[in-house]
Amino acid sequence: MGAFTVLLLLLLPGAAGGAAVCGYCPGPLRNASVVARYCASRAGTESEGRCCRERGARPERLLGLDLSECSLRGLPPGLAEAAAAVVVDLTENPLRALPDGSFLGFTHLRCLAVPPALECPGGSSAWEEVTTRGGSRLCQGQRNPCNGSGELAWLCPENAACAPDGPGLVACLCESPFHGYKCLREGAFPGPLFCGILGTVTLALALLLWGTQRRKAKSP
């Protein structure tokens, strides 16, 4: 049953994740980081590795992520675990660029510190204030790209509404009762049918993998 368990862990998002990103760099929060300063000024927080969490919340909300001075040449693969973060520090790393969409889903991000050679994700227009101080560029006050002049409104099809999805990023959400490709289908989404098909396919794959591994184990 070992293969079956592994497959379930892979199919269930976050089942084997947890706080991996908090231990990506060794040691606790660095005293000089904007994350440490933010969490020290906020009551009811506790640190876990390079993360700052809201104490007592269920599930515990990750408020800050300190990846400063981690010798990063690229962003860690588990960065999405910190999508609820308010503060992120990436300073003192040899980062060359931040790929588009690096902070997809980071809708709560209010302060991002990056090396001064890098631009803020989404550009300066995605933030209320951009300042350079010493060895860091501070991107502060994430703006809602759906507000204002409405330049992004045309990106969403008819029957869809614009929603912020990170610095300079938007998502188009279907308005009820529309769903499907470009929100062209009207009516309730067939949830029970979809879940039934997904469950059947998942179970079939799991049984097939388990049977294959079992035959291999029995063969001499």
Rank of each mutant, 00 (worst) to 15 (best):
P94I: 00
G74Q: 14
W210I: 00
K182S: 10
V21Y: 02
V86G: 12
A15P: 08
C195G: 06
A32L: 14
F189P: 07
N144T: 04
S47C: 07
F189N: 07
L7D: 12
G168S: 06
N93L: 02
R215A: 05
G56A: 13
A85P: 04
S102C: 01
G141N: 01
Q142W: 07
P116G: 05
W127N: 04
L118F: 09
V35G: 03
S219R: 11
A163G: 11
A32H: 13
L8E: 14
A83V: 01
E69W: 08
A217L: 14
V6R: 08
Q140W: 04
S149D: 10
G123T: 05
R96Y: 01
S71C: 10
G168K: 08
W210R: 00
A84C: 04
A153V: 15
L209P: 00
K218G: 03
L112Y: 07
P76D: 02
R55A: 14
W154K: 14
G105F: 00
G18H: 11
L67W: 11
C139D: 08
E128N: 07
L65I: 01
L208W: 11
R58N: 11
C120H: 01
D66K: 06
E46S: 12
N159A: 13
P116I: 07
R137G: 01
P26V: 06
G27Y: 13
L72K: 12
N147T: 09
A206S: 14
G14H: 05
Q142N: 12
A32R: 13
A36H: 11
P28S: 02
R133W: 02
P167D: 02
G17C: 06
V6T: 15
L72E: 10
V170C: 13
C156I: 10
G18A: 13
L79P: 06
P121H: 14
L90P: 13
Y24R: 10
L205A: 13
H108A: 11
S136R: 12
A206G: 13
L10N: 09
A40M: 14
G74D: 12
L198C: 08
G148L: 09
Y38S: 11
G211T: 00
V34R: 15
L90Y: 06
A204D: 00
S136N: 14
A171L: 10
F194E: 05
S47Y: 10
P28L: 04
V21F: 03
A43I: 15
P157W: 06
A160D: 05
C111Y: 10
S124D: 14
R110H: 12
L62Y: 00
G123K: 10
R143S: 03
L79H: 05
K218M: 12
E128P: 06
E81H: 03
R50F: 05
G180V: 13
L112M: 08
R61Y: 00
H179T: 11
Q140F: 05
L193T: 10
